[in-house]
Computed example of a mutant assay.
Amino acid sequence: MPQPDTETVEPERLVVVVVRSGGIAGLSKQWRAEPEPARVPHWRELVERCPWDAAEAPSTGADRYQWRIEVHRGDDAVHQARLGDGQIEGPWRVLVDEVRQAASPSSRGR
């Protein structure tokens, strides 16, 4: 007797993008991390520690960095935040540092 088709479960896909713009030269840099399926729980925890609902609009000023942080699951953006340089602290700093460290060489310095 043939077995019924079983739906293949795709591993969760998580992508975190960090863009820093501004500064003296006004240039943008982008880092992108897409952890392997085994590392997704660690990254999900990093993302969930960040106060997404409390993210305030970044302060503006000459030569200040602005940060855009996006988290995507599959093709859907689930979190987005725009922060000023002074707001990148605590869980935000940990997340940004992890993304920058994990970014593939091809995505660094864009």
Rank of each mutant, 00 (worst) to 15 (best):
P4K: 03
R49G: 07
T8L: 12
G84D: 06
G23W: 07
P11G: 07
M1N: 09
A33I: 00
V17L: 07
P91A: 05
P105L: 09
R100I: 09
K29T: 14
P105H: 13
V17T: 15
W92A: 02
D53G: 13
W31R: 04
W52A: 01
W43M: 01
V47A: 02
R44S: 06
A38C: 10
D85S: 15
L95K: 02
Q80F: 13
D97P: 02
Q66H: 10
R93C: 12
A103L: 04
T8F: 02
A38T: 14
Q66K: 15
T60S: 15
P11D: 05
R20E: 03
A103D: 01
R20D: 10
G26C: 10
E45H: 11
P41E: 00
W67L: 02
E70K: 15
A57I: 08
V94D: 03
E70N: 08
Q66Y: 11
V78K: 09
D97A: 06
V78R: 13
S28P: 05
V99W: 00
V19T: 15
V9E: 12
Q80W: 14
W43P: 00
G23D: 14
L14V: 06
P4Y: 07
D5L: 13
S107W: 12
Q80K: 09
A25S: 15
S28E: 14
A62H: 13
V94S: 09
D5W: 08
A62Y: 15
E89C: 12
W31I: 04
R110Q: 11
A102F: 00
L46H: 01
A81K: 10
V94W: 00
G23H: 05
R82P: 10
S106M: 08
E7A: 14
G84T: 05
A25H: 11
H42A: 13
L27S: 12
R68E: 13
E34Y: 08
R13N: 06
W52G: 03
E34K: 09
R68D: 13
S104T: 15
T6N: 14
A81V: 02
